[in-house]
Nucleic acid binder design. Structure first.
Lengths: 154, 154
DNA sequence: TTGTTTCCCATCAAATCCCATGTTATCCCA
DNA sequence: TGGGATAACATGGGATTTGATGGGAAACAA
């Protein structure tokens, strides 16, 4: 599970270290890396491992093949996603267009969100974290257990 | 899984490089190439590897033999598809009629969509990507978890 | 022949690999 | 518990490989 927040530097080649705990979270499969795409909600990046993409594929394929929403989601997730594999030191190279979408310049903040994570400009993220905390406080009563227990692996 | 978008040039001989990640995605089988056919939805091409064609065959064979829809799909997919094999550098030669259907002229945009991919005129695709992003944002709630529980993490 | 397709080789940029280094966190033992 | 030893992590730069592309020669077809 992706948890915690870490800010790492982006070097002149566009390389950035992925937090070690994120890396160990996606290790094991044949693809040693992550999937990253621009959020269609705002100026940040969405990311996850193979398992997340498999889930999205399953959810999208459950939709009607010629549903316009399905085609838009296919395009905006799979069409925009990049496979970024780790180098020997656990870094990825962020393509310029992705860095541009998120306004990344020299530093990137990785935010673990359970089954997926986000990559933010550190300043933007600080502002968002503040407002999210307020919003969480106002909505804390919405946090409740599902009526029937469901299993969640580790 | 086919992901990401890449635009490559079409040379005077009609050759175009298939993105390396697409190639590795279809490698392994006896047929070293891809299947491509004109979309019956609009001016672009549909494509995939052997696995995709096997899936379509399975789905179509599950239909009644004289179902009109079955015959239309057989004709529009298998009847129109071409097998385009890679040359030593990973290029295919696009037949003129396929290039014509998609309005390809000098450049081709490959769009990974999970199990399959599409080939677009770069300008047409840019317009579609923009509208798809808006539409995806408005319809993201249609992405539902499958009813059966899945585990978190990788 | 004439035009077309397939194969082969050359080139250039970009992505990847490899090695070195500083810094922090963890371990281990007295 | 203190403190040195060790390992893990993040970072920088050079060397090497891969990927995309262009053009020519050989095989094939009309």
């Amino acid at each position: 599970m992706f948890v915690s927040t870490a800010t790492n530097g982006i070097d002149a080649k566009g390389r950035v270290s992925v937090p070690a705990s994120f890396r160990s979270n996606v290790s094991g499969g044949p693809f040693d890396g992550i999937y990253v795409w621009p959020s269609f909600d705002g100026p940040w990046l969405e990311g996850g491992g193979q398992a997340l993409m498999d889930d999205y594929l399953e959810m999208i394929e459950a939709m009607d093949p010629y549903d316009e929403a399905r085609q838009a989601l296919e395009q905006s997730i799979f069409g925009e996603a990049r496979t970024l594999s780790f180098d020997a030191n656990g870094r990825i190279t962020l393509p310029k267009d992705l860095a541009g979408h998120a306004g990344l310049d020299g530093k990137a903040t990785f935010v673990g969100l359970g089954r997926r994570f986000e990559i933010w400009n550190p300043d933007s993220h600080a502002r968002r974290a503040t407002s999210a905390r307020t919003f969480a406080k106002e909505n804390k009563l919405k946090l409740r257990r599902p009526s029937r227990m469901t299993e969640m692996g580790q």
